[in-house]
Design a protein around this nucleic acid. Structure first.
Lengths: 162, 162
DNA sequence: TGACATATTCGGCATTTACCGAATATACAT
DNA sequence: ATGTATATTCGGTAAATGCCGAATATGTCA
């Protein structure tokens, strides 16, 4: 039975009240884009840090269980919102925010173009008259939106400088 | 005890398989934008109809309880996705899709600008160095995105003609 | 190899959410 | 006023989700 200390590590929060508040506000704004609140807080926290941080640091700052931090961090990584770094000489893992700020939103952009093409493709098979015309405008709308967002979410000027 | 017939009205679906399929696909694409699946199906269904439809018609087509249709429809209305029409001479209520296709997404656009201004306003109070610079880019990114989307979601060319 | 430090998996609890059906409210016509 | 057709409210249920802690796995050093 080696080492039961799976506890929340000694909770010495180094965050200022202003930082906590900022993280919370940011998280609330990210939730409607499909990000679970704790993952959103984690994302916000990482945005504040200049250097990669370990799971235990996150546990201490965010006051959630380590197991959950682990899964939340990997979820963020799988969406490309966050980068995971391994250190040599230890099993410890560190996280930093991804290089491009657009990643949390890219999924949504994809949806816009899917929506546009679905509608354009099927509108005449599923509707006629006024309704078909309306669907045509709906498709155009989403196509325009998709183009506009895509241009920005892929722009390199927002990317982290190396 | 007057009139217990709160049942799902005689379910004679007039929808073709193609229409059902379209509604379902569209609904799936709307869910990530924060719309509950049944409300999304209702929205898709209304997009196919040239004329306003009653709650009972919806119940028959979508095979959900009338009470739920009632609440889903009012939710859609409160977001401006759908218009509610009263007929004179009856309590019956009819629904049509709203005049502008952008409404389901407008909430999200608002979030973008909120996000941008939150970050721009607080970045120097909550971060410094590399992190502050990154936040600056994050704010710019969201500002650009917000502008781009706003231009399209408010464009009149997508609106229903009178 | 064993001991340690760390991350991850897993079962379960608690909260939220979508939905139903019965009961109730409301508007209208007679 | 009463009856009728309709919509809405409300309590409850089931499924999904977020989160925890214990158990387990994995990598590293001596």
């Amino acid at each position: 039975m080696p080492n039961m200390s799976n506890d929340k590590a000694a909770d010495a929060s180094t965050l200022t009240p202003a930082q906590r508040h900022f993280i919370e506000e940011l998280a609330v704004l990210l939730v409607p884009w499909g990000m679970p609140i704790t993952a959103a807080r984690l994302y916000g926290y990482l945005q504040l840090k200049e250097e990669p941080v370990s799971l235990d640091e996150i546990v201490a700052e965010l006051e959630v269980s380590k197991s959950h931090v682990s899964t939340a961090a990997r979820m963020l990584e799988s969406y490309g919102n966050v980068r995971r770094l391994g250190e040599r000489g230890t099993k410890r893992v560190l996280y930093v925010v991804g290089a491009h700020p657009g990643t949390p939103l890219i999924k949504q952009v994809t949806l816009l173009s899917q929506m546009s093409s679905l509608i354009a493709r099927r509108k005449d098979a599923v509707a006629s008259g006024k309704a078909a015309d309306r669907l045509g405008r709906l498709a155009d709308f989403h196509a325009d939106l998709s183009r506009a967002m895509e241009g920005i979410t892929t722009a390199e000027r927002f990317q982290d400088p190396e």
